[in-house]
């Protein structure tokens, strides 16, 4: 019953930035429904509005016009405290620049979102360690971000995004700062987690290698959806990734 409500619904979303008196139309009427458990890629050249859309869906910024629903909840209608809870509990964020807290260890970074839900310290540490093991960093718990490679930092960020078992993972160009192979491994990891946990993944990218893995691909251009493509048959399955 709950599954009939889409994980994300975007209705006629517009975003206009004011830049020194000029209006920048970053989004011009986006309509999108994303069912639970889907892996959706948002493709588009730089400046097409991917990050802006990501911010709208993630409740990081408000649309100039239109609405965003997460699990049926209208983001424009909830108070900021509830919004914070939604960001904490329902959505996991992954950024191009990893955005780990530089002074915290890998384990502390992953434990951070759990603090805001009031999870006791021993439990947070245990779960953070488990998550880091699940992304292949079981031996890096006490490393600081600067002591990790880009690919490893992004794995920590993925573990952190999963900390509160979110329903939705929002990834904004997660491979943008990584070389080809490392980037591919990150995408595979995201796909594996989606398959194992049934998490909805929305991944903004301008990287074509993401397409093979997506259930659907949205092509964005100048703030509008140009095309939506469905993958009929996935060339890769979760099992194949397990064996990596």
């Amino acid at each position: 019953m709950e599954k009939s409500v889409p994980a994300v619904k975007v209705v006629d979303v517009h975003k206009i930035y004011q830049l020194r008196g000029e209006e920048v139309h970053a989004l011009r009427g986006i309509n999108l429904e994303i069912p639970h458990g889907e892996y959706l890629s948002v493709m588009g050249p730089s400046g097409s509005g991917k990050t802006t859309l990501f911010n709208m869906v993630g409740g990081i910024d408000r649309p100039t016009k239109g609405r965003v629903f997460i699990d049926g909840v209208d983001l424009s209608k909830i108070p900021s405290k509830s919004m914070a809870w939604l960001r904490c509990r329902k959505i996991g964020y992954i950024f191009q620049t990893f955005n780990l807290i530089p002074v915290l260890t890998a384990q502390e970074n992953v434990a951070l979102p759990m603090i805001f839900l009031g999870v006791p310290k021993p439990e947070r540490e245990k779960k953070a360690a488990e998550l880091l093991r699940s992304v292949g960093l079981g031996d890096r718990l006490d490393h600081r971000p600067t002591e990790l490679s880009g690919g490893q930092q992004q794995r920590v960020a993925i573990a952190r995004a999963l900390a509160n078992d979110p329903a939705i993972i929002l990834a904004d160009e997660p491979t943008g700062n990584l070389d080809l192979n490392t980037g591919f491994a990150i995408v595979q990891l995201l796909y594996r987690l989606k398959a194992e946990r049934g998490t909805t993944v929305i991944c903004a990218t301008h990287d074509l290698k993401m397409i093979d893995i997506s259930d659907r691909v949205v092509f964005l251009r100048d703030g509008m959806i140009e095309n939506i493509e469905r993958r009929r048959a996935l060339t890769l399955t979760a099992e194949e990734f397990e064996s990596d």
Binding site: V5, G72, V73, D74, S82, L117
Partner: peptide, 22 residues
């Protein structure tokens, strides 16, 4: 919006961040 969205079953919880954690 349509009534479908209105009767969502999601329960919204709250954030706890005691001063000790800060």
């Amino acid at each position: 919006m349509s009534s479908k969205e209105e009767d969502s079953s999601m329960e919204i919880g709250s954030i706890s961040f005691p001063v000790t954690e800060a």
